[in-house]
Amino acid sequence: MKRFILFLLALMLAGCASEKGIIDRDGYQLDTRHQAQAAYPRIKVLVVHYTAGDFDTSLATLTDRQVSAHYLVPARPPVHDGKPRIWQLVPEQQLAWHAGSSFWRGATRINDTSIGIELENRGWQNVAGAKQFAPFEQQQIRALIPLMKSIISSYNILPQNVVAHADIAPQRKDDPGPLFPWRELAEQGIGAWPDPQRVAFYLNGRPPYQPVETASLLDLLARYGYDVKPGMTAGQQKRVIMAFQMHFRPTSWSGAADAETQAIAEALLEKYGQD
């Protein structure tokens, strides 16, 4: 009789564990049928960096105690079983220290809400007093595209939240620089890009490099998500404009406030909304 009772209890527990929304764990059960509405995804932003060094140096730095990133993509990824190999250094659900002091669309501490991808690339060199950036290898970009698509899909990351390190920290950073193919990625469904016809509409026949009021342009950039504060110096203002231009108008990224930059900002705000 005792065995029969124990058998019935086991059946009842098994039935409970098989209920929809009930998860059986070692020593306890979870009832997941009542989900809170005041809950938000942790991962909202995807940040692209370059390493400013070779692969071995970059790997050593990113696996040390000072900085980290979720992924490291070699300039020329080795191919195994017909697929390029990418290094995962931090699990996606864990926080990596890749963004540093940062701001995007009203949020600070971007490390807490982002995944960081580092691309092996030497960055820029000073050539005759000007920054000269290194190009990205095509095989690196081909490997990067499916990785970014997977991350964006997994966390429903909005196009405007696929950003450069320079976008979220324009006073400190330039990466991944003006040679990173943001437009090519946007054509693959990765990240934001303005519609050319809407840029032309907002340009309204003005010469692209016609000067515009810096304060008006910065207001647009602030609405889109950049960190624009009262009392910024002219140099700080220039850095914000330069970061935006590197991303969305890489043919000319002097940091000057001009009509085409303004038109691009207006087209992006129309398409993706404001902060």
Rank of each mutant, 00 (worst) to 15 (best):
R3K: 12
L11G: 05
M12V: 14
L13Q: 09
L13A: 14
A17Y: 12
S18W: 06
G21A: 12
G21Q: 02
Y28W: 15
H34L: 14
A38H: 10
I43A: 06
V48H: 04
T51K: 03
T57C: 00
T63F: 10
T63V: 09
Q66W: 13
L72N: 03
P74D: 08
A75Y: 02
A75G: 15
P78V: 07
P78L: 03
W87A: 13
Q88N: 06
P91C: 07
H98M: 07
F103R: 12
F103G: 00
W104R: 09
A107I: 05
N111A: 13
I115N: 05
I115A: 00
W124G: 04
Q125G: 01
A128L: 04
Q132N: 04
Q138E: 14
A143I: 07
L144N: 12
I145D: 07
P146I: 04
M148I: 11
S154H: 13
N156D: 13
A164M: 12
A164I: 06
D175N: 09
P178M: 08
D195H: 12
R198K: 15
R198L: 09
V199A: 00
A200G: 00
A200D: 12
L203F: 00
Y209K: 10
Q210C: 04
A215M: 11
R223Y: 02
Y224W: 09
K229N: 08
Q236S: 14
K238V: 14
V240L: 15
A243Q: 10
A243G: 14
M246L: 07
S254G: 12
G255F: 14
E260T: 01
T261L: 07
L269S: 11
K271C: 05
